[in-house]
Design a protein around this nucleic acid. Structure first.
Length: 800
RNA sequence: GCGGCUGUGGCGAAAUUGGCAGACGCGCCAGACUUAGGAUCUGGUGUCUUCGACGUGGGGGUUCAAGUCCCUUCAGCCGCACCA
């Protein structure tokens, strides 16, 4: 038969939909498989080949699982709240609702064209009030449990545009829009107390099957560090300055202290500081820098000494100066450090610049040249002198601190609490009411969803407040507690909110009584296999694991870890090897490929182009090779005759079934396809195959190229749908050849090969070599010193 | 700076984990069928001074045997980034 993809792909997509074969069944007696891919943000640009790659991996796995008899949940949805839609809504003067609906429709039809086996009865849209009702519900539960709090913090603000900017939009301290100076402005921020779950999130990693680098990135993101808190007495005021350190063993080497420019102690004791104006000026200078800039200028340390207040080193009672410097952050530890220039590079740089003493307390380096951060014997440290290990010194110092009541063990995390509000329109309204008497009150559960009001002008307000602040009917309300007039919170949730629990909704997508039915959650959870991009491994995955752990703690979900397994696909690069981007003009549109070659070719090529986990450049002519392969598959219908097995092909078939079955599990789709290509080459070399064998081959190929294989199945006279036929099995005994070709080395050099019966003993193999004139000539007349024989692999003869 | 990953033909890549390096595909070369080929089919295709030698970024090592293990070095990509 000819390969006519244009006429068959739409036809089979319709048949599958009609038969509903990809709907996850409610039959909970069957074994389940929950495969999850990251739902897309439905941008106006439509699908990207990267989306296709991201979904194709678990698409193949899911199709295989169905054929293996699993009840498969392989859902799709849309993460539709967010800034890009809002911005283009402003630009084109259209409502984001309209744009979102239009984009979702576009994505849906594009996804369907590729033949993905998603369960389209469970589609979710995070901007649907039936969905975000439950996003708000979970937020309210967190609010009830004290995991939501409000604090004032510094944000990047452009006084010219009157807008709050992200770090990315304010690089170099200049506003990305007007290029004016950006300042740090304090602003009320809603936070979710994710830090409270830091240890649980870390612990949970021990029992899940994530790629090693995924785990590592999450661990680094959480950034747990163990150390100590210690109090340093200040002179000229009745207060101690609390610091955090991981190296309390070096305390005898402390020659100064540094605090963050924003440290509250400065304001508190302003009247005792002689150079307060200088300090204020420095602080103002720092405030101009964005966090980005501040962390970029690592080399040159700046700072100002506080004149009027000093500190006492609690280890040796010596008075030491206190500085303010922006290399100490208010957001980590206590915002104050003890500086040990001899053994910390940053402190060393600072001390050199400001001419501060450098006292060696650990032997092993040359502190006249640089800080020594390695291990060694303690010196100049009184009761620590002579100790040789860091651990022992730390323990001794900790004991000393606690005995004196001026310090204790402590833990710190790099992870910060999650800033949870945005001054934007296109997001879930935060269900909180501000009452003058009662304070912050949650919107009652029965009033959820708190609907996003319809607006025409949703440009952010002056001073960067949320567009919702302009909707009086939304803002003005009564306090649910006391009934007095009150005001609603007008900020909305960030993009990450809706995606933090979407995998739960898929289990029961249309439930109006709960976010999902408990029985269904019990059956489907955890997600068996989650695949997505590396870029979501920290934020999205950490956030959603946090929400899930919270729901587990309040008894709303049956398992603590949501994702049993996590893998990641690599990028598809442009044909030039660069990242695809509109500006470079190297973007490949999957629709063009489907138009020209068909969905099956697109799917095969994307999985064949290289290792699934690695970045691979697109190559137009390689796509043609995949088309040729499918044409050769279609051509097999012309030579397939009879039943049973073709002797010359039997072992090749069993080997291929084994290889493809295993490779899919390891996401080695490229070698699975290569194995099928090799089998097709074998078949054409033999010149014939049976109909049974062809059926086996197209069954193996079905998860990769479902349309053409479905068509062939029917051309061969079948009436069922191949997509739900049984996955082929293989006979291990038949994957083993009766004779194997092994390599023969003489003195370690490859000299040829011999055919031996599989598993042949050494003497049998050696006899064959002796009878081979060419091989035996290499050691004729020499002494055989040693024979190394590895069954079915190699024979190495050492002769002198 | 720290952490991770990667480095193999002209190109994308394989290599049962220490055992015939380059499977499979692209490209290229030759031939066939053709008025024609950017279609199809067949054969070939790591390099070189080609009965042999060399070859997995470079250098060194372990081993009968190294793409794979160890040491060292270089290059590229991706995270994190003054985390005390």
């Amino acid at each position: 038969m000819r390969y006519d993809f244009k006429n068959i792909e739409a036809k089979w997509q319709e048949e599958w939909e009609k038969a509903g074969i990809f709907h996850a069944s409610e039959d909970h007696t069957k074994p389940k498989f929950y495969g999850l891919v990251e739902f897309p943000y439905p941008s106006g640009a439509g699908m990207h080949v990267g989306h296709i790659k991201a979904y194709s991996g678990l698409e193949v796995v899911s199709r295989k699982r169905r054929m293996q008899g699993y009840n498969v949940l392989f859902p799709m949805g849309f993460d539709a709240y967010g800034l890009p839609t809002e911005n283009s809504a402003i630009k084109f003067n259209t409502h984001p609702r309209i744009l979102t609906d239009r984009n979702i429709e576009k994505f849906t039809s594009q996804l369907k064209r590729v033949g993905f086996s998603f369960d389209w009865t469970r589609v979710i849209d995070t901007t649907d009030e039936k969905y975000y009702k439950w996003t708000q519900w979970i937020f309210r539960k967190m609010f009830d449990k004290g995991l939501v709090f409000r604090a004032t913090t510094l944000v990047n603000y452009c006084p010219n545009c009157k807008v709050v900017l992200s770090n990315e939009d304010s690089q170099g301290g200049k506003c990305d829009i007007c290029h004016g100076d950006v300042v740090q402005k304090s602003k009320d921020v809603w936070y979710l107390r994710i830090t409270e779950y830091a240890d649980k999130l870390l612990e949970g990693l021990k029992k899940v099957d994530y790629l090693p680098n995924v785990k590592l990135q999450q661990e680094n993101w959480i950034g747990r560090s163990e150390g100590a808190f210690a109090d340093f007495k200040l002179t000229n005021c009745d207060e101690s300055l609390r610091i955090y350190t991981t190296r309390c063993d070096t305390m005898f080497g402390v020659t100064f202290m540094v605090i963050a420019p924003e440290h509250p102690i400065i304001e508190k004791y302003a009247d005792r500081i002689n150079n307060i104006a200088e300090l204020e000026a420095y602080k103002a200078e720092c405030a101009k820098k964005t966090e980005f800039e501040r962390t970029q200028l690592v080399k040159d340390k700046t700072g100002v000494r506080i004149d009027g207040i000093a500190a006492i080193n609690p280890a040796n009672g010596k008075e030491i100066p206190v500085y303010i410097s922006d290399y100490v952050m208010m957001g980590y530890g206590t915002g104050a450090i003890m500086a040990v220039p001899a053994h910390d590079e940053r402190d060393y740089d600072f001390a050199k610049k400001f001419g501060i003493d450098i006292i060696e307390v650990i032997k092993g380096g040359d502190i006249s040249k640089e800080a020594y951060t390695g291990d060694g014997e303690m010196v100049n440290s009184e009761f620590l002198n002579g100790i040789k290990t860091k651990k022992e010194a730390i323990d001794k110092m900790l004991a000393y601190l606690s005995e004196k009541g001026i310090g204790e063990k402590g833990v710190q995390y790099k992870m910060k609490d999650w800033a949870f509000n945005r001054q934007r329109y296109w997001g879930e309204p935060i269900p909180i009411i501000h009452c003058e008497k009662c304070g912050m009150v949650g919107v009652p559960y029965e009033e959820l969803p708190l609907r996003l009001p319809d607006m025409e002008n949703f440009v952010p307000g002056e001073g960067g407040e949320s567009p919702l602040a302009k909707v009086e009917s939304f803002v003005n309300c009564t306090c649910p507690k006391c009934g007095a007039p009150a005001k609603r919170e007008t900020d909305t949730m960030p993009q990450w909110a809706g995606s933090s629990w979407y995998f739960l909704r898929y289990c029961d997508a249309h439930n109006d009584e709960a976010f999902a039915d408990q029985e269904k959650l019990k059956y489907w959870l955890p997600v068996d296999w989650y695949n997505g991009g590396m870029e979501h491994v920290t934020r999205h995955m950490i956030y959603s694991r946090f929400w899930h752990h919270f729901l587990y703690d309040i008894g709303e979900v049956p398992v603590d870890e949501p994702y049993a397994k996590r893998t990641a696909q690599g990028l598809i690069l442009g044909p030039d090897g660069d990242k695809m981007s509109k500006s470079k003009g190297n973007v490949v549109d999957p629709n063009d490929v489907v138009d020209e070659y068909g969905a099956d070719v697109l799917r095969i090529y994307i999985l064949f182009m290289g290792d699934y986990g690695s970045a691979t450049p697109w190559n137009d002519s390689s796509v043609k090779g995949c088309k040729r392969f499918l044409e050769r598959i279609a051509g097999l219908t012309d030579i397939a005759k009879g039943t049973g097995a073709t002797p010359k092909l039997e072992s090749a078939f069993h080997k291929t079934i084994k290889k493809v079955s295993q490779d899919i599990e390891e996401m080695k789709f490229n070698t699975a396809i290569a194995a099928m290509m090799a089998l097709v080459n074998d078949i054409y070399n033999v010149g014939t195959l049976t109909v049974d064998e062809l059926k086996t081959l197209i069954t193996l190929l079905n998860p990769f190229a479902p349309h053409i294989t479905e068509e062939i199945w029917h051309v061969l006279g079948e009436n069922t749908l191949l997509s739900v036929e049984a996955w082929p099995s293989y006979d291990e005994a038949k994957t083993v050849d009766s004779t194997v070709t092994i390599a023969v080395q003489i003195c370690g050099k490859m000299r040829g090969t011999i055919d031996v019966p599989a598993g042949a003993e050494e003497d049998v193999a050696f006899d064959i070599i002796m009878k081979d004139e060419k091989l035996s000539s290499f050691f004729a007349g020499k002494n055989i010193v040693k024979k190394i024989y590895v069954k079915n692999k190699i024979f190495n003869i050492i002769a002198k």
